[in-house]
Write a protein that binds this DNA or RNA. Sequence first.
RNA 1: GCGAGCUUAGCUCAGUGGUAGAGCGGCAGAUUUACAUUCUGUUGGUCGGGGGUUCAAAUCCCUCAGCUCGCACCA
Length: 878
Amino acid sequence: MSEISKAYEPQAVEEKWYARWLEDRCFAADPASPKPAYSIVIPPPNVTGMLTLGHVLNNTIQDILARRARMLGREVLWLPGTDHAGIATQTVVERKLRKEEGKTRRDLGREAFLERVLEWKEKHGGIIIAQLKKLGCTCDWARERFTMDADYSRQVQEVFVKLYNKGLIYRGKRMVNWCPVSLTALSDEEVIMKPQNGSLYHMKYELVEHPGQFLEIATTRPETLMGDTAVAVHPHDERYKHLIGSHVWRPFPKAAIPIIGDEHIDPTFGTGVLKVTPAHDKADFEIGQRHGLEVIDVFHPNATLNELAGPEFAGMDRFAARKAAVEKLREMGLMVREEPYQNNVGYSERADVPIEPRLSEQWFLKYPQVDKSLEAVNSGIVKFRPERWAHVYDHWMQNIQDWCISRQLWWGHRIPVWYRNDNPACVHVDTTAPADPENWTQEEDVLDTWFSSWLWPFATMDAETRAKFYPTADLVTGPDIIFFWVARMIMAGYEFTGQEPFANVFFTGLIRDMSGRKMSKSLGNSPDPLDLIAKYGADGIRFGLLRIAPQGQDIRFDEKQVEEGRNFANKLWNAARFRQMHGPSAPEVNLEGLPLSSYSLDILSKLQALIVNVNAAYDEYRFNEVAQSLYDFFWSEYCDNYVEAAKTEIFSEDPSAKASALAVMDFVLSHFLRLLQPFMPHLAAELWATFGFQAPQHGREHLMYAAWPNADLLAGIAPQRLASGSERAASVYQAVRLARNLRAEVRIPSNKKARFHLKPQPEWVAQESETFARLINAESVGLQPDYEPARGEPGVLTPLGELYLPLEGLVDASAELERIKKEIAKVEAELVTVRKKLSNSNFVQNAPAAVVDEHRKREIDWSEKLAQLQKMEQTLGA
RNA sequence: GCGAGCUUAGCUCAGUGGUAGAGCGGCAGAUUUACAUUCUGUUGGUCGGGGGUUCAAAUCCCUCAGCUCGCACCA
């Protein structure tokens, strides 16, 4: 190892280890294992998708959970796979077809088109899976599933048939959200409301019964007026109620349409008169139903106008028609005015165009198990983290609407329904076609992709796997798919397995760019994670991202953070190099009977505290806290403090002292690498192997199967021994900080040896003075209990005693005095604060005894310090 | 309109009742034999405003403001 580069080079190491893990089948889950099960199903990414930073965050968390569970002795299943992403994938292939061959899918026909989609899938389908492997994910790849697998498809159809037979699935002509680009219905969840700057047009319709009199109407959509079949007013509206029952002229195509009264109308909005277009607005449709109005659809499916709109509009796009209709109204003298107006318009999530409310024949699902699913989250059977997302879930579940599950696409699960040719009302609903297929026609529509993904936690498992691993333990996903996926999975779990699909749902934050914008392809503000992996290593990006990913808060991504992850990896690498340079490591260390320095006792205590902290953080899914604890411990405690202090022993003439320090390093490193493994698996494995540490505790040789460190690992060392070691070490480290500061104040460069004098305070100072001297780069530290500093000699009060830095020649006594005075002022301020508290009888009476005692101790400490500082001040010649 | 979250150092963020923290940046110094992807020192905050509860508030409550995000929606 010492011949290897001074800097850690992750690429080769990461590839090597991933290949070895695969070769040794480290990720395989065994349903026959006697070990307790731990399982996660991956949120299936789109089969043709590419890895985003969101995926990196999400899957790293899953990997961390899976890796830790293995070390805790669980039989782990992390089940991977992809979904077929109906609209997204079909759209991509259609676009390609149009661009390269000038054809539509209908030119090819259903079967030939689906072959093209499959070709596309074969070509691009493996990419994201390969990318997850680069990240180090320990999915059981042999179990990779796809929502269009034959077996999975069969289960989707079975579920459809079951729900149909229960009467929960029905077909009906309803108003749905229609995407005029994808030419399919969408569920309510796939529609995004966006504010639009448009106009509110005031126009007037002539009263049929009172020629020459007009009714003024405000609308944002004049292009639909050709489909108006009524105008409506509030039944109690004094301005208009006398007109109810009479008629107005629809200007074009000219027709008399009734004036009706309906409670839905808000008299305070616009003119208080609503044009009613039942074919093109959800609310209007309902009004139409209540009043038995005619429904006139003036649009083609692609949102161009049809013949019913009149010959001059037929074939015109809806937005061109808006202008044309306004122009025509103007010509007819019916346009009163146009005012700027902002309203919300529903957009198709995928195609990003305004959806059209459209009346069409669709399949709907009345959600099953709603009450039970609500209760599961409310009672904590399924625990949401952070808990606040339970409110969002609750609200949606309480206001749940039937789910439009049919899509007018070809790429997806075709609905298992056949209509009899001679009588379409007669249907055959089954997972198999009718025995006389020539007499039947299968439903053209396919199912919403989410209608397959909601079965994911169990439809991906065979019976044996299910018996061992279902329900799963944790689900890790984004809060943006609570409705799309999480809620539906809970309902499906209860409906089809009788069990909740998972015990915990951990919602990650969204990753944003530095200006707080969501990362998206169109904005181009999303860095390619593969580039980052190439630059910083998978371990670097994993650690860097997790360290700044607080529980459920959005994350502002900065490449700097990944750089820090890489730097941390390098720090570990070099700490390991340092250890390797001083001899081979022991595969296992026994601390008992070992002479241990104060610093060793201290770092061991800190290691123990680290394990406790890390476990507590894991219990609450606080991954950033785990990462931060690991970082602080290793960089500050181990490298900055311990390794530097231990150099006294490492370079000493006493072989037993050296052996002790090296053994402690081995002990700390072997435990630390285990704690680190879930976050930085490749580097941890590499170093583990380099050191030759043993790991067979759970039956496999790899670090990832080593036992998770036990928090009582120091049981063999007396607690008071640990405590006194830590106390000494803390005093020395504190004194070192003060001494270095003193050096800097008097401008002695950090590489220049300096001579110090110390009036030792604790009786043990002599035993630590060598290390102290090393840490402050002292030529010598003279221990002189009755040292009398020269007038104006710079000094500082440390936990080890008064420390002086005699300087030959020029010393600015007044500057030195100034420094001490500043210090005194600080201490006095602290004393004022603490004394104020202690003199408050309410505080002394009401505060817990421990807090009061602590303040009393604080007062004594500050007082002593003040006394000494004042003495130093006097010496300086105040 | 309803709901949620956020507001702490120049920047990104930890910190949920008991002495305000980290990283980065800035500034100063150092190639001290593991590491310049480094080390040492240092600068920097009346914890968004106001009010309240409490012996004690960044932390709990109320209120206001700003910024995000859901849900609903008047044409």
